[in-house]
Every structure is written in C-alpha cells, then in structure tokens.
C-alpha cells in the first residue's frame, strides 16, 4: 500500500508546473446564466432579467459568479468515459475528492463575454489521514475575458486517496 501511495504521489509530482490555456469558442450567452441559476435554485433577477440588471446599473444581465469558476465548457475534445474533459486526462492521476476552493472575482461577466482560462498545477503534498495516506494537488485557474482582462481566479485543492484508480472529480 505504501508503494501504491508513493507511485500515485510521484505521478502527481510530475503534473506540477503544467500550464495550459483553454479558450472558449463562443460567447458565454445568457442561456448559460439561466441554466446555472435554475440548477442552484437562485432566483436573483440580475442573472436573467435585463430590466432588473439595468436598474442595478449593469449594461446587461450578469453571470452567477461561481458559474465562471466551475465551468468545464472551455475544455476541447469532448468527454472521457468517466464524464470528464478528455483535455484534462494528463493532469488527473486517480479519483480526486474536492478539498476546497478559493475564488477571487474582479469583474462581472456578461453574455457577450468570451472566456479563456489558464490552468496551472501549482503544488502537491502528502498528509497522513485516518484511513491512510492522502495526496493533495493545488490548481490555479485564471480567467480572462476577450479583452485579456483578468476577471477571476480560482485556486482549488483536490485530494487523492492512495488506492484510487480512474479519473473522477468531485
């Protein structure tokens, strides 16, 4: 088991420093805002109602902020059998469990914006948990709009159990 954990951690270590930029192929669109708002059950009219948005001083409806930091639409090449973007397979070495996220938002997103995200694996580390060794991977995603303006940063940490195989993310 110790060898298995070490092998997994060595695989994770090889992902550190990997950086790639993914650019969406179309504007994010207002339908995306409604889908997300419906899914989370957030009736905020700023996401769907133009009159409400203008009354609040906005030029158009705005995206739910966490839509931007959780969207996989930027990744090309479709999905693998686990339902994850094929484009991320090289940086996923097991079955991760989400440990946490830290978002910073700088600008609102509107329907005509086209998003690009730079994804970088920033560090990995190990920790002894109650059920064995755990390995952690920190990933920083920086989001820019079509004017190359930084609009948000998402630093996320995922955790791998030592016996994990496959490729799912929570």
């Amino acid at each position: 088991m110790r060898d298995e954990a070490e092998t997994l951690f060595q695989k994770l270590q090889r992902t550190v420093g990997h950086e790639e930029t993914f650019t969406d192929d179309k504007p994010i669109g207002r339908a995306a805002f409604r889908m997300y708002a419906d899914a989370v059950g957030d009736p905020n009219p700023l996401y769907t109602n133009l009159d409400a948005a203008r009354k609040a001083g906005l030029p158009d409806v705005m995206a739910p902020p966490t839509l931007l930091t959780d969207t996989f639409r930027i990744y090309p090449d479709g999905l693998n059998e686990s339902g994850l973007p094929s484009a991320l397979e090289q940086q996923s070495v097991g079955t991760p469990i989400r440990a946490g996220n830290s978002y910073r938002f700088f600008r609102r997103i509107h329907p005509s914006d086209v998003i690009a995200a730079t994804r970088k694996v920033t560090r990995v580390w190990q920790k002894q948990g109650r059920s064995g060794s755990l390995a952690f991977q920190e990933i920083e995603l920086s989001y820019r709009n079509q004017h190359s303006v930084l609009v948000a940063v998402n630093t996320e940490v995922v955790c791998y159990r030592e016996s994990a195989e496959g490729g799912d993310a929570s």
Binding site: V40, P45, N101
Partner: peptide, 27 residues
C-alpha cells in the same frame, strides 16, 4: 459537486448584500 455548495453560499451573501453589491471573494 462541491462547488455547487459554494454557489449556495454566494447566493446567501448576495441576497443579503443587495443588487448593487459585488462578491469579491469566496473561499
């Protein structure tokens, strides 16, 4: 999805802070 839970927190904060507020960070 763990990030869906973050969306719930964002909703709570923004509902309280009002339509002209801006969520600067969430961890």
């Amino acid at each position: 999805d763990g990030q869906m839970l973050g969306a719930f927190l964002a909703q709570m904060v923004q509902q309280w802070a009002g339509p002209r507020s801006f969520l600067q960070s969430l961890s």
